[in-house]
């Protein structure tokens, strides 16, 4: 990316479910101020869906009471990144160690593929219909991957942090 972000901020969030909606409102206020009428009702809905799931994931996995959300605004896209200090996601080893260039089925219709610098890119394949009896009962990553234009995961082994980076075109 060549352009520079015109606005960047960091929100420290507490790992309690009652904090989800106030922080969602804070995020939406920032985005509406930065992008004015580009935050359509449809975009707002998608932001709500993935933000709730990123937050819920942090509550489940963070080993400390707080985590961080960074908002990085560019002219036509925004990056929203969640960093928590918790346990590495239990993903297939081929993905975590970047052993294959092929997409790997994680569960239901969620796939992961190798990105840059040991990043994993998540995406969904909506052509796959999962039988209810075989359905994995975890939908958080699917919801995030279905709501944003790109979704990357990385585990920082030095800092022991889970990093979810999402991109949304505006």
């Amino acid at each position: 990316m060549n352009e520079h972000s015109f606005y960047k901020c960091l929100i420290t969030c507490s790992c309690y479910s009652h904090s989800i909606l106030p922080n969602l409102q804070k995020l939406l206020s920032i985005l509406k101020e930065c992008y004015l009428n580009k935050i359509t009702a449809d975009k707002e809905k998608k932001i709500k869906h993935f933000f709730v799931e990123m937050y819920t994931n942090a509550i489940k996995h963070a080993n400390v009471g707080n985590f961080e959300i960074e908002i990085d605004c560019y002219e036509n896209e925004v990056f929203i990144t969640k960093t928590d200090f918790g346990t590495k996601l239990p993903l297939p080893i081929q993905l975590l160690e970047g052993l294959t260039d092929e997409p790997v089925l994680i569960y239901n219709n969620l796939f992961g593929k190798k990105g840059q610098h040991l990043q994993i890119e998540f995406f969904v394949n909506n052509d796959i219909q999962v039988d209810p009896l075989n359905m994995f009962e975890h939908f958080g990553l699917q919801i995030i991957a279905s709501s944003v234009d790109a979704f990357y995961y990385q585990y920082d082994t030095d800092k022991k942090s889970n990093i979810f980076k999402t991109k949304l075109f505006l």
């Binding site: 709730v52 819920t56 009896l133 359905m135």
Partner: peptide, 20 residues
């Protein structure tokens, strides 16, 4: 007013039990 993935997961778990 809103539902998260954990709650949906619980609903699907119950559905699997129902089908069985």
């Amino acid at each position: 007013t809103y539902v998260d993935s954990s709650f949906l997961g619980a609903l699907v778990a119950a559905l699997k039990h129902a089908i069985a």
